[in-house]
């Protein structure tokens, strides 16, 4: 069954066909949510929120744009809003659990190197590098994190990104470049690059 037919059926009240839309887009939606929010439970909650929002607003979808672009836009906006909420929450929590002298502990890279020297385990090192990259991505602004996730994780083209974000392609290039420069500098300091 073609995607338009599925949408029409769902609009007419045949809810069960919405499962096909979920199946088709859950990887993109969950993947974006997970890489953006960096928390499995949060990503699941966000994915549910996104799909419920899609279902509730499906009647408003007129078919002018591609359904994939429309779904992706909802995903991006929902994740961005959720991240802002999380950051506010984390900010409050960090203030509460701050321990003086914590910055004097060996850096993550030092610990990774130390661990590698003692027990050379590539998979562990790989996970640790990933975790560091995640951590540095977390330090970016939501806008920078958004473009990096869209491009490098979700694999969107510049044109698609421009369509989703409703900005020009040159603006996309500019945003992406600044985001990558920022992240590269951080990872260079961590000696990952």
């Amino acid at each position: 069954m073609d995607e338009k037919e599925i949408i029409e059926k769902v609009k007419k009240g045949e809810t069960k066909y919405f499962a096909e839309i979920i199946n088709k887009y859950k990887k993109v939606v969950f993947g974006h949510a997970y890489n953006f929010l960096r928390n499995k439970e949060e990503a699941e909650d966000a994915s549910q929120e996104i799909f419920v929002s899609i279902f509730n607003n499906l009647k408003k979808f007129r078919g002018d744009a591609k359904i994939s672009t429309w779904i992706y836009r909802i995903t991006v906006n929902t994740c961005k809003n959720r991240l802002k909420q999380l950051q506010r929450l984390r900010g409050r929590m960090t203030e509460e659990i701050y321990e003086p002298g914590a910055e004097e502990k060996p850096s993550l890279v030092d610990r990774i190197k130390e661990k590698e020297e003692k027990e050379p385990d590539k998979s562990f090192a790989s996970d640790e590098i990933k975790n560091t990259v995640y951590k540095r991505i977390d330090e970016l602004t939501p806008e920078q994190r958004q473009v990096i996730t869209m491009r490098d994780v979700d694999g969107l083209s510049y044109d698609d990104m421009a369509r989703v974000l409703k900005i020009s392609v040159s603006a996309v290039k500019s945003k992406l470049f600044r985001a990558r420069e920022n992240l590269r500098e951080k990872l260079e300091k961590d000696e990952i690059l």
Partner: peptide, 20 residues
């Protein structure tokens, strides 16, 4: 970064349909 892709949990579809 691109290696960070994750698979959506299997139960997600059931969970969302139940919510709807």
């Amino acid at each position: 970064i691109s290696s960070m892709k994750v698979e959506a949990p299997e139960y997600m579809e059931t969970r969302i349909m139940a919510k709807i």
